[in-house]
């Protein structure tokens, strides 16, 4: 029992050290994050402006969102748009791709670590540093500009934090699977860009899912991306209550578990077939 506890503590220490290392590197590269913050602010401002124009010309959009709600949705969705290729995520993704193309992945595979947990730990570091240096400042700037509403209560903040935590688990699971698939590819950048585009489109970062046309909405509901962006945004805005809220959290939990399990199976299958290209 004591041995198991010690082993567990050792594992947690090992993987949390990876997360901490990513946070430290992120904090050291403040200029890169300043650029990322600028790009996120501009991206969000453009989307807020575009949806403001669309809303003014569409009774359907007006029925779904009043003007402050529309702006709040786009800002919060921009803040929690974890599909964005910020400095930290780009660093992890391209490092993984480079490991495959140069053959360094061979060294990674012989390390005495669980690759899936290692990747989750990396993404936790990425997530924390992105939240600290990009997401929170973006929210704060739009908040000071009076564009985004505050959460209605302390409970809303707590539920939002819980939803963000679950969104991270779904995101890490998704990244791990995409990363595993790129093992079979000598150039995985196309897969990465496709993941970004699909995640933004079906996740609710570009279009509120409530406004998604019929068939596309059905597809979006069947995919995990809604659990990453749309759910936290709607929780922030108190748009989910009672059974709807429970269902949304349930969907996040199910996707987090499912993607972890799928990732484990995919990794075991693919790692047997991996070819070290080298050079």
């Amino acid at each position: 029992m004591a041995f198991a506890a010690a082993s567990w503590r050792q594992s947690v220490g090992r993987y949390s050290a990876v997360s901490r290392a990513y946070v430290r590197v992120g904090l050291a590269l403040r200029f890169e994050f300043l650029v990322g913050l600028g790009a996120t602010l501009l991206n969000t401002w453009i989307l807020v402006s575009i949806w403001s124009v669309i809303r003014s010309g569409s009774s359907d959009v007006q029925a779904a969102f009043d003007a402050p709600d529309m702006a709040t949705y786009m800002v919060v969705a921009g803040v929690v748009n974890f599909a964005r290729m910020g400095h930290a995520s780009r660093r992890v993704i391209y490092r993984s791709l480079r490991q495959v193309s140069t053959g360094q992945i061979a060294v990674e595979l012989v390390r005495p670590v669980n690759m899936q947990l290692l990747r989750y730990a990396e993404w936790l570091g990425v997530f924390l540093v992105d939240a600290l240096l990009v997401a929170v400042p973006t929210w704060l700037i739009f908040r000071l500009a009076g564009v985004v509403d505050d959460p209605s209560s302390g409970m809303s903040v707590a539920l939002f934090a819980l939803s963000i935590g679950l969104a991270w688990l779904v995101l890490a699971g998704l990244h791990f699977i995409v990363n595993a698939i790129t093992l079979m590819s000598i150039s995985g950048s196309g897969v990465t860009m496709a993941r970004v585009a699909i995640q933004e489109f079906f996740g609710g970062a570009l279009i509120p899912l409530a406004l998604m046309p019929g068939a596309l909405r059905v597809v979006a509901d069947l995919l995990p991306f809604q659990a990453i962006t749309s759910t936290p945004t709607l929780v922030y805005m108190d748009r989910l209550e009672g059974p709807e809220l429970v269902r949304a959290f349930g969907v996040q939990v199910i996707w987090a578990i499912a993607l972890f399990a799928i990732g484990m199976v995919v990794w075991r299958l693919l790692v047997r077939r991996v070819q070290i290209q080298g050079g």
């Binding site: 196309g190 860009m193 933004e200 489109f201």
Partner: peptide, 18 residues
């Protein structure tokens, strides 16, 4: 590298379509 080629072509086209 057929798998890689189809994966690359499919994904490059997919993100533009979306």
């Amino acid at each position: 590298y057929r798998f890689d080629t189809w994966l690359g072509l499919g994904s490059n086209l997919a993100w533009r379509v979306f």
